[in-house]
Structure formats: C-alpha cells, structure tokens
Design a protein around this nucleic acid. Structure first.
Lengths: 113, 113
DNA sequence: CGGTATCCATTCGGATACTG
DNA sequence: CAGTATCCGAATGGATACCG
C-alpha cells in the first residue's frame, strides 16, 4: 500500500494516474513541454477547457511539484507557467502517449482540416 | 484536429488520455498485462473500485479494442478478460508510468505495510 | 459467477459576471 | 491579464438489492 498526501494507493500506476491523469493534465504538461506559457496562452491553446478547470488543474500540478508558477509584479499582471525539473521527468511518458495517440488515429480515426 | 468515434481532439495526448486515462483504466491494463483475469479476480484485486465502474471501464476498453472479453458457456458463468495484441502496445507506456509512480513514492510518499 | 437496476450524494463542468 | 464567485445542470461514483 502506497501513501501520498494522505491518500492511499495500492499500485504506482494508480498514483501516477491520479497525479497526471484525467482529461486535461496531460495536455497541459504537453504544452509546457518545451516552453513557458502564460495563463491566457494556455487558455487560447486549449480552447475547450473552462477557466475554472484550467486554473484548478494548474494549481493541482503546482502542488505536486510538476508545474511552477511565476508571477511578475506588473500591471497588467503576468503569470508564467512552466514545467519544473521534476515535471520534466514526465516528458518521456507523454512522448509515448502522444505517439500512441497518433498511431491510433492513423489506424482507427480521421484527421480533420 | 483529430477525430475518433465522433469525438474531436486537438492533440494525440488528449485522445490517448481519453481512451486509457481516468482513474481506473491504467490499473486494469496493468493487472491484465501478463495474465488473463476473471471478473471477480479483478474485483478482488482492485478492492476500491465499485462493480458498476469496473464493468463500465471494461466495456469501454473492450469497445476500443484494448481488452477482449471471453465468455465460457458454463454454469456457473466464467468470463475472462485479457489484453488484445493492440492493447499490449500500451504496456511500455504503463511501464514508465509505474516506474515514475514508484519513484514518486520514494521521494515524497510513504510505504505502508 | 458475472453481471444489472436503482437510488442517491457528490463532484464536474460550462457559462457568465465581476475584480485587483 | 489573471484570475474569483456564483449558479446550475450533467455526469460520476458508491451502496445495495436483485437476476439468469
């Protein structure tokens, strides 16, 4: 039995999926893979996510040490999100996931404009 | 823009996470990695999943060609679940995920009995 | 044994309005 | 710009009982 942040998991796959699984976290990590992004940039890229959910996912990733949030004390405000060095250890995983998804579309899906 | 089963995705990571992400699918795939399992075996292994959710996830994985369901016409009934050859192409991904989870526990979590 | 059906509480998630 | 606050319907998830 594994324990992290007062939650119990019986296998490491379950734990990882709890931290970076779900509908959006992988996509966020994927966008931050090679560049820092501002809040609004992410929002524009991931058009189908709501603001509420985006900020919730970012906070969650931040609290697990995967994403870092840097605030510039300017007006208008500027906040940049990026992967921490620890978050970057996830990149190989999402590289495989991305490749698998591409292949899946080739085999069973379609590409639209 | 990607399309699969009438759903739209704007990146392959999103698609893959939709198919095998979520709280339970990874764990199910992980258990089926090296052996066929009966419904009740899975239920006993993944103690914290409800029957309803387990069957829903299995059906979903089946409909995406990842898991196959074999019914033996016996009394009492016997149903075996296993990974299809296509489902096995996911194993390298979950191997990385499992390793990452183990490391995460070493660094930030604890191991209980 | 391998599921369904049902009920119900909780959470998720989208839309919109507002603020420092 | 980068969020918060609020409303509210939809979807999820657990527990239990029941069935072929």
């Amino acid at each position: 039995m594994l324990e992290y942040k007062d939650k119990h998991y019986y296998c490491p796959v379950e734990l990882t999926m709890d931290l970076v699984g779900g509908k959006w976290k992988g996509v966020i990590i994927w966008y931050l893979k090679d560049s820092t992004m501002r809040y609004n940039e992410l929002k524009k890229k991931i058009t189908t996510i709501s603001e509420k959910v985006l900020i919730k996912e970012l906070r969650s990733l931040e609290s697990d040490g995967i994403v870092s949030r840097k605030v510039y004390p300017e007006v208008p405000p500027k906040v940049e999100y990026s992967l921490t060095p620890y978050g970057k250890t996830l990149i190989p995983i999402f590289e495989l996931i991305s490749k698998w998804g591409n292949k899946h579309v080739e085999l069973y899906g379609t590409l639209k404009e």
